[in-house]
Design a protein around this nucleic acid. Structure first.
Lengths: 208, 208
DNA sequence: GCGCCAGTCTAACAAACGATAGGTTGATGG
DNA sequence: CCATCAACCTATCGTTTGTTAGACTGGCGC
């Protein structure tokens, strides 16, 4: 009744109405926030719709189901982080410098704005049907980090696979405790994590 | 009708019936599994009750609400990990050896059995009322690790607070990807994480 | 053997959930 | 000016949610 209806194309993008793909992005953004804050089961379609300025039923015009919406959110978020990382390492020389640049981009994309990403989700059984697709998305990003870790001059006894999990685990854990109010920037967090790991090289010896 | 009713005290602890505090522990165990697998909102009281061999209403004899049950689970889990860590470092000499022993105990308690703990939870707003109590539980365990990190001979530019978050972040992230089927033991994971960080000492210099 | 009480079940409540079917709107292309 | 169609709303379905009130059961003290 008081809400806006129909659509509006060429001009006047202001206001609560938007184009077709525009709305999709809005929904993805708002759903991303809510999924990150409350988890898959915790966030309701009604909440997501309300956050976008819609009613619950209207979501099903853009996404077939809640599962499908989650997959789209997850995929978009991973793609966003991956792209930021790729851009950040462009032209950077030196294996450690490249890993640090990647970590900074990774952290910044995860922690800035209100688009807190959903990377570290332990997928609930309700998402079992789409689990393979979610894991595939994450895998692509993992392979990107693998390619950055491979050229490091790590000691022989260091398992590079576990090393990647170590790095990403430490970085991703920041989404739990990080508050923008702190005097720390997301880049600071990433720099400390990588800065500490820089000590792990062939020339050095571990403490006993 | 076919179910067991009433109680049973002194003898014959076998079967599905149990004493007062016994039941409480059963509920905590099963609820712990389900909360860990599905999150706070994802696990229903009926599921938890069924897993314990009860009906949903009966849970409210032992716990006042779902929130209260979660607090009890979370608290019990943290206390369990903390106690395991305290026992593991008993009599161990050397700052790094103590931290490694702690990390192993931490990982083993988190990853073994079916009692996957709920440590890295980003608390949903539904738990806002009890959030302070949850954070306090976690803080106690954090202080324990602080006391282990303090005596390390870390370089001056290493922030010990971020270092603790780094260590626990890397260790806790294992609950996401770790599968017991792997040839890796929980202790292996902990050893690799600490083994890598052992390179961070005053004598060494970071890679450029 | 009788009453008590811990512990569990039964049955139901209102609220919220994901999802669907069909109506309504307004810009657009002819 | 009319037909079309994307985009949204309305209303509702059946299910599941957390929670409660009250009935029941069986062992224990007296």
């Amino acid at each position: 009744m008081a809400r806006s209806t129909g659509r509006m194309r060429k001009d006047s993008e202001r206001g609560s109405d938007a184009g077709a793909a525009e709305r999709r992005k809005q929904i993805l953004t708002e759903a991303g926030k809510l999924f990150a804050a409350r988890g898959f089961e915790g966030a309701s379609m009604r909440e997501i719709a309300a956050a976008t300025g819609l009613l619950s039923g209207s979501l099903y015009y853009h996404f077939a189901s809640k599962e499908e919406l989650f997959v789209a959110v997850y995929d978009a978020n991973i793609r966003m982080v991956s792209e930021a990382v790729r851009k950040a390492i462009e032209g950077v020389e030196g294996a450690w410098a490249r890993l640090e640049a990647a970590a900074i981009a990774h952290c910044e994309t995860l922690l800035t704005g209100d688009r807190t990403a959903v990377l570290d989700v332990k997928f609930p059984p309700s998402l079992l049907g789409v689990r393979p697709r979610l894991i595939q998305s994450r895998d692509e990003h993992d392979r990107l980090f693998d390619s950055l870790i491979e050229p490091l001059d790590l000691p022989e006894d260091v398992n590079r696979n576990l090393f990647r999990l170590h790095v990403l685990g430490a970085l991703n854990s920041a989404v739990i405790w990080y508050r923008p109010s702190s005097h720390l920037s997301p880049a600071d967090v990433a720099r400390q994590v990588i800065g500490v790991l820089r000590y792990v090289r062939k020339g050095n010896t571990p403490a006993t």
